[in-house]
Design a protein around this nucleic acid. Sequence first.
RNA 1: GGGGCGUUAGCUCAGUUGGUUAGAGCAGAGGACUCAUAAUCCUUUUGUCCUGGGUUCAAGUCCCAGACGCCCUACCA
Length: 536
Amino acid sequence: MTSSQPSYYITTAISYPNGTPHIGHAYEYIASDAMARFKRLDGYDTYFLTGTDEHGQKMQQSAEKEGIAPRELATRNSAEFKRVDDEVLGISYDRFIRTTDDDHYAASTAIWRRMVEAGDIYLDKYAGWYSVRDERFFTADETEVRADGERYATETGTPVTWTEEESYFFRLSKYQQPLLDFFAANPDFGGPRSRFNEVIRFVESGLDDLSISRTTFDWGVPVPKDLTAPETDLDHVMYVWVDALTNYITGVGFPDTESESFRRFWPADVHVIGKDISRFHCIFWPAFLMSAGLPLPHRVMIHGFLHNAGEKMSKSVGNVVAPADWVAEYGLDPVRFFLLREFPFGQDGSYTHEAVVGRKNSDLANNLGNLAQRSLSMIVKNCEGMIPQPGERTAADRRILAQAEELLQISRTAYEMQDFHRALERTWFALGEANAYFAEQEPWKLKKTDLSRMNTVLFVTAEVVRKVALLVQPVMPESASKLLDALNIPENGDAGATNDSGSGPRSFAAFATELVPGTPIEKPAPIFPRHEERGD
RNA sequence: GGGGCGUUAGCUCAGUUGGUUAGAGCAGAGGACUCAUAAUCCUUUUGUCCUGGGUUCAAGUCCCAGACGCCCUACCA
């Protein structure tokens, strides 16, 4: 962690712990985790933030139903999200932030103060048709008067009443043009492009000022009294998104903008979020930051949603999958691999049991697992249990090594845009070529005719396995580590879980080296077993 | 209503700035091999590239119109 080391700051969205985590949450955590591990292994001083967003009316109401305090409910449910990260998914976050943390209150207050000082916050009335049942306002256009003379929300069919509420507003309209200029100057700010286009179109269509406080409930960050005293006697709490978005700078030390952490990690390299909250991250958040005079994040990566066999996951349909269930059925690494290999990250994906098993068996067990098994077994049996000394290399040897060699750069480029799908596709293409190479060279025949040549072929194959194992550590930390163990590569890091992974024989820096002939290896055991159907 | 994206082999999808016989993986069929986790390798079947026009020497790739699907947004007062 020297100052010369490049830094990388990545965040997930913070989860609203009004329920339990499902496979959609896991998708975002796993992808972000792979991204963070990749950067750590590639020598970046990396900071990875995740956590829970605990304020708001919904949490308060849920707590009331249970007869407990909001903070108690938040603490309990937040712990469950954290437990899934820690015990089920192996997420290598550096901090699990809670918006109820003390330093977060300080940060939220500070950014609010900055926005006030910028002249961007004013007091007004928020008025509209409020549906108690939906807990939200509707514009007049969104309501209709029915035959009974009462007014209803058209969309949800619930009765609405005219409600006026004092509220602080943020001058979002002022930032329409600055945002559009920023978008034009930073075409990769939002990804994928199609989602980013939606955001841009929305801004172009005009921005209204944003209501950013509430007085009807108190479960939130209080608006500082010294800022409200001249204007109101009411107690305002911040609109949940104001404080929620602020977590990204709380996590690196804000409001101390001179702190080592803030200077090192802000602005963030990427915020990873779902498509339902792109507007908050691509419009509100940059506008808040502009107002507060803080640098803007480099990128917001918007991922798609997972569908169960093409159907939207929903509690009422009963097709919601708990991460722990999947991990129990398929294993953690196969689940991680499946989610990142099967779907382009920016698109929705549809999963089926058959698809997961297909990836697990053909890609993991057959292509990668078996290549390692067949090559290492031959080394143990025919090379006195040591990595053999290779002889002169043929064109075929050089070709397959070069193909593995270029995977690092291909992966770097792909990961830069969170294109995990492509990185893995290219890696598995190379594995297919390696299996073909092995079959063509027929080392099992060479052992009777040309031992030196056999040694070369086995060395080259094992070397390809080593490079792939290094490269898939971010996606499958445990299995990749076992592969490296099997090759007797000295341990140093922890498959990208901490910044210790940035150097040494298991880091990406070791990509440029080769296996050391004479290194003893043990009789290998299958690392990627085929899927066994359970029950039945 | 406005806009975005998509529609390519049975399935999931690649197809760069228009250029030779349209590709991959999986699934199917046949064969080979035995080092290996009944794995691996080779060969192989199927495509009106949604439809109809247009531009061009040349279009899956550009333009126009339409169909279908998903999404964003507005409206239906």
